[in-house]
Every structure is written in structure tokens, then in C-alpha cells.
Nucleic acid binder design. Structure first.
Length: 301
DNA sequence: AGCGGTCAAGTTGAT
DNA sequence: ATCAACTTGACCGCT
């Protein structure tokens, strides 16, 4: 019933994703720059294939792809087009191969662009950069067969309702290849499921319900009510997030994630449905495998 | 070989 | 006014 998802990287399995920094890259001559980017992108395509095969071999049904799979792709100075890299064509082919593999193995893939992607900023240049980043995500998503690109609602800028109205307006203007993959996630500081559900319904965008964020920032909805409401926003298999807090309630900040998931934190309401649940835990694949085991054992909780 | 400092981006809230 | 937290390692560069 439940498809468990691994987020971005591995704890123990020898599968790594390379990155680089703009500062270092821009210190190198142009030829070397493009060669290095090519090496990294080719490595990451091969690692994505290995990641999909690992998931298949271990009963993990979903994999979140790190946004830096093509590092610095949309950077204002260090950014590039993949076809301009040495061997760029082969790199795209390798990603398309991952897409076919994900279909064949039925490993669902997703993206979760980071906190700088803000569709509701009052600053037009911030929104334009966010759009450029979403265009990049949608392009790679098409290659690798990812059906979900999850973002947060953004900032409140002192007026939540206005911020949500700007978000709705920005979503309405998105090209369809972005919009039909875009999803909104409740965060742990500002926007709750109750805030986002109307936006999701009006825009036809699914809600990625993060139950840990909801526990950090409650809104009066029970887990069951939020779950049911989130489920109703999906026209395909729903996707949720779960994590356990690093610090016990009241003994530290709510945000940081634990190494593993305490099965008690996994909403029993979710078990009645066919859903994807991405596991946000520091020990990565070890945490996913342990949770699968813990939830399968009859004497849990 | 090992380790410490650094890394594109925006916003919030603690100090 | 300044700066860490978000996440979170990977990688460069120095010893």
C-alpha cells in the first residue's frame, strides 16, 4: 500500500552525487570549467541509475533527486546548457535512460527545490530566478520521469493573505510542463495545511502533506483531517513527508531531523491509503529500511 | 591522508 | 543591525 521514498543521498551504500561551487569553477579557465561540469553531471547521471537500482533491490519505491544533480545549472555566472558541455548529448541520454529505468522498475522520482525558490516574493527578480530554476527542474524531470516538483509557499512578508494571493497568481502563469508537476508543501514556520489547501484547490496543485511540519506548526486540523484534505487534492498517487524530531518535544528546536523515524510518528491514518511517503531522516536508506521493517512487525507501538 | 573552512540564491526571527 | 537556521554534505586546499 505504502511506497516509501528515500531522499537524495545514501548514508552507507557507496552511491554519491558530486557537486561543485561557483567560486571554484569561476576561478578556472572556461575549457576546464565545462569539462569539470561535464564530469560531474555524467557521474551524477550514473549515480542516479545506481540509486534507482538500489531502491529496486531493497523495496524502496521512490527516490527524491537532489536539485544539484546538475550543479549550478541556473547560476547567473556559472550556469550552462547541458548540450554545451563536452559529451553533453551523452549526458542527456544517460538521464533519459534513468527515466526509462524508473518506469520499468516503478520507482517514483521527485524533486524538492530548496528554500530559495520563491514564487511569491514581492521582488520580481526573485520570482524570475525561481521560474528559471523551476524550468530547469521541469526539464530534468521530463528526462528522468519525475512527476513531482515540491516547493514551499515562500515568505509571508508581513501579510500572509497577500503572500498567498501572489503565490496563486504566479502559479497561474506557469507553463504547463512545470505546473503539472508542481506541488506545495506545508512548512514549519509560516504556512500550514489550512493556509495552503485553498490555494491548492483553486490552482489545481496537490498538497504534499508534511506531518512533522504540521506538528511543529499546528493549525487546528487533526492529522486525519489534514490527511484527508491533502488526499483530495491529488489526481494521482499522493505524496507525503514524514520525519522524527532530533530533540524531544520542548527540549530543542522542532525542525532538525532525527537519524531514524520513530514508528510512533508515522500516522496510522496513512496506512489505509495507497500513497508515497518520503522519509526525511539523517540515516537515509538505513532509516527507510528500518521503518519498513518496524511498520511490518506486528507488535509496533 | 586527513582535516578544517567554505559553499548561489531569500526570508525569518533570535540576538 | 547582524547573522544563524533552514539542509547537508562534498570538495578544495592546506598541512
Amino acid at each position: 500500500m505504502i511506497r516509501f521514498g528515500l531522499c537524495c543521498i545514501f548514508h552507507s551504500a557507496p552511491i554519491t552525487f558530486r557537486r561543485t561551487t561557483a567560486k571554484y569553477l569561476l576561478s578556472r579557465p572556461r575549457g576546464e570549467r565545462l569539462q569539470r561540469l561535464s564530469d560531474i553531471c555524467a557521474h551524477n547521471a550514473a549515480s542516479l541509475e545506481a540509486a534507482l537500482r538500489f531502491c529496486d533491490a531493497h523495496g524502496i519505491g521512490a527516490f527524491r533527486i537532489n536539485s544539484q544533480i546538475l550543479p549550478l545549472k541556473t547560476h547567473p555566472e556559472a550556469g550552462y546548457e547541458v548540450q554545451d558541455l563536452p559529451g553533453g548529448h551523452a549526458i542527456v541520454k544517460a538521464f533519459r535512460r534513468c527515466g526509462r529505468l524508473s518506469r520499468r522498475l516503478d520507482i517514483r522520482t521527485s524533486f524538492h527545490p530548496d528554500q530559495f525558490i520563491l514564487l511569491n516574493s514581492p521582488r520580481p527578480e526573485v520570482v524570475e530566478r525561481a521560474m528559471a530554476d523551476l524550468r530547469y527542474h521541469a526539464q530534468v524531470a521530463a528526462w528522468v520521469n519525475a512527476d513531482v516538483i515540491t516547493i514551499h509557499a515562500g515568505g509571508a512578508y508581513g501579510a500572509k493573505e497577500d503572500a498567498l494571493a501572489r503565490l496563486s497568481a504566479a502559479i497561474a502563469l506557469l507553463p504547463s510542463d512545470i505546473k503539472h508537476r508542481l506541488t506545495l508543501e506545508n512548512d514549519d514556520r509560516m504556512f500550514t495545511p489550512r493556509d495552503l489547501l485553498p490555494v491548492c484547490r483553486a490552482a489545481g496543485i496537490p498538497l504534499v502533506y508534511d506531518v512533522h511540519h504540521h506538528r511543529c506548526l499546528p493549525d487546528g486540523l487533526s492529522v486525519r483531517k489534514a490527511t484527508d484534505a491533502a488526499l483530495s487534492t491529488w489526481r494521482r498517487e499522493p505524496l507525503f513527508h514524514v520525519s522524527s524530531p532530533r530533540f524531544a518535544w520542548g527540549t530543542g528546536p522542532c525542525g532538525p531531523h532525527h537519524d531514524y523515524i520513530d514508528p510512533v510518528d508515522f500516522p496510522k491514518e496513512w496506512c489505509e491509503h495507497t500513497v508515497t511517503v518520503e522519509i526525511e531522516a539523517k540515516n537515509k536508506e538505513l532509516a527507510v529500511l528500518k521503518l519498513i521493517e518496524d511498520l511490518a512487525s506486528p507488535d509496533r507501538r
